[in-house]
Amino acid sequence: MVKPRHHPGDEWLVSYAAGTLDEAYSLLVASHLTYCGVCREKVRAAEDVGGLLLEQQTPTDLDLGSLDRVLARLDDDVAVPAVRDIRIQTEAERAHLPLPLVEFIGGDLNSLSWRSLGRGVKAVRLDAHGREDSRLWLLRAPPGMRLAEHSHRGTELVLVMHGCLHDGSEIFVPGDVDEKGDDHWHAPVVGDGEECICLVVTDAPIRFKGLVARLLQPLIGL
């Protein structure tokens, strides 16, 4: 496995550690962490901030009997899964997809209702909860495909999971995150040879440049 060279900004890692991200962003970060030892270490470091702040909390008195209640339940026979669902793990390995994603969709990519956007491009919006207007997508595009030129009113994070993507002078391979902010126009191109499969999070509707693309926008809901 090649080490990822393109990472999400540290603010995403810190907020993942703090637990403030929506499911969509959280899933994208967790999926990137599956590929990236460097960012895992950063998240671990950021979690230490959480640990320290917890340690520094002024204690609040508990209800009387709180400790006894929990002590009485220690021997409850509750099965704690020591390892994650083996079926899902195998699925993830076989499909070379990050385990958090396979758990999130509860199966393989073929079980999803993909919508064709024409020219071999397919997308499916995943149901993700959160407090913000974030949207979570899976996108697959055939080799050599140029995706519609577009810009954003917010942030777009793209995690490449299969194949590769060229964006400007940069190339993104599995594990890499392409992060584009406000008013950055771009038209990513899928590398030759393999289909590209990406996980995409946007925090506002994408604004397409071309007229046809704009007409398509309400249709495909990007």
């Binding site: 999926s31 962490l33 599956t34 385990l99 999130f104």
Partner: peptide, 8 residues
């Protein structure tokens, strides 16, 4: 009431 995706 949200899910928390975590890497293995």
């Amino acid at each position: 009431r949200e899910r928390r995706p975590e890497p293995e």
